[in-house]
């Protein structure tokens, strides 16, 4: 029986999010990243961003595990440095079925309590899928221009 889950925790616009650590391959500062990779701000997935947000609030990136070898390389832009933590299994909860049914962010998979804060656990595999339309429509050069 799983007693704890290692996750990559980060804060974005005063909200806490986490990915299962096995699905995150690296992190870094936006001052240094592979210019060949597209940087997709996390806001973009939450449908909360404006162009100004993208510029101001992405300070770090996460590289998620790629689902297929032919996928374009991309990085997830986040607003703070991520940390690796252990979440006790009893603090992790599936979303109630009615919230799963009504969620507007399909990658939202579960929630957890950590230090009396709510952590939204994001399914990195679903996020990869959500990135595909943007990856298909945006060239690396266009991304750099933003």
């Amino acid at each position: 029986m799983i007693k704890q889950l290692t996750v990559v925790l980060f804060c974005h616009q005063n909200q806490w999010f986490a990915f299962e650590a096995s699905l995150v391959k690296g992190q870094g500062s936006c001052s240094f990243y592979d210019p060949k990779a597209l940087l997709l701000p996390f806001n973009q997935f939450l449908n909360q961003s404006t162009a100004k947000d993208k510029a101001q609030q992405t300070t770090h990136w996460l590289r998620l595990a790629a689902q297929s070898t032919d996928a374009k390389p991309w990085l997830l832009g986040i607003a703070s440095e991520a940390e690796l933590i252990e979440l006790p299994a009893e603090q992790i909860h599936t979303l109630p079925p009615h919230l799963l049914a009504r969620r507007t962010f399909p990658a939202l998979q579960a929630v957890a309590w950590y230090q009396q804060r709510l952590v939204s656990i994001i399914d990195a595999r679903v996020l990869q899928g959500l990135a595909h339309p943007w990856l298909a429509s945006v060239t690396p050069d266009a991304s750099q221009a933003e």
Partner: peptide
């Protein structure tokens, strides 16, 4: 009540009721 991103506006958030999640 903790705000939960990615939900419709009618969802104020979730709360901890004796260890369980309640919307």
């Amino acid at each position: 009540v903790h705000y939960l991103p990615g939900m419709p506006a009618s969802v104020e958030g979730v709360m901890n009721v004796r260890g369980d999640i309640e919307s």
